[in-house]
Design a protein around this nucleic acid. Sequence first.
DNA 1: CTTGACCATAACGTATTTGTTATATAACAT
DNA 2: ATGTTATATAACAAATACGTTATGGTCAAG
Lengths: 115, 115
Amino acid sequence: MIQGADANLDAAFLALADPTRRAILARLTQGEATVMQLAEPFEMTQPAISRHLKVLEGAGLIVRRAEGTRRHCRLSDTGLASVDRWLELLRSALSRNYDRLDGLLDAMNSGKEKE
Amino acid sequence: MIQGADANLDAAFLALADPTRRAILARLTQGEATVMQLAEPFEMTQPAISRHLKVLEGAGLIVRRAEGTRRHCRLSDTGLASVDRWLELLRSALSRNYDRLDGLLDAMNSGKEKE
DNA sequence: CTTGACCATAACGTATTTGTTATATAACAT
DNA sequence: ATGTTATATAACAAATACGTTATGGTCAAG
């Protein structure tokens, strides 16, 4: 079984793969901000930022709250949670491999593993 | 200054954004495999898998070892490490916000229910 | 009601990604 | 040598990503 097709994870990792979007997230770690406030540091047009925010929202990395004519953005934990849940697969495998290195001599003594 | 342009992170997150590549990584958590072994479960040609592996290698998520005519692939920790280091930024911000929310609710209600 | 600020969406060009087929290279077996 | 297996690379087509300009909608202020 191939397992791995998860549109949610696709969206989250793809959202994180862009430096502008990561910079936006980094900015949001300091607190909420409106779209205009988020756009200000970049040499980019406002529509471009709007689409980046849409991608981040679709990935569950931010949420938006309307207040008058402004949209306040803040970090959301759902996107990070699913990303972290998947990465745990790699983390545990890598730490297992590391443990195996500890017992390498033992493993060599007891023969080879199943293949 | 905007900070956030990191080609290494771009490569790692982009590599993780593809379901085929995540499936390859998931397979490698069970141990080393050759290119052909990795390609076998997929309805995809071998050159396509070869390029996915190149992307994963460039992102520091796998390493390859030549043995005769075969290339054995295994997980590498460097890619995951840089990814995790960056995500820690989000994690700490989200937990800070969560703490603040706790304090805020406390201050507002001084003893209402906790969801 | 008109104006202006804030934000979203559509239309579009270009670069990048992802697959394909065809072919090259290197090692191994006959 | 010849053929076969394992893998990489080049050339190409289709889809997607990312930016732009142009424009539309909503709210707040005068």
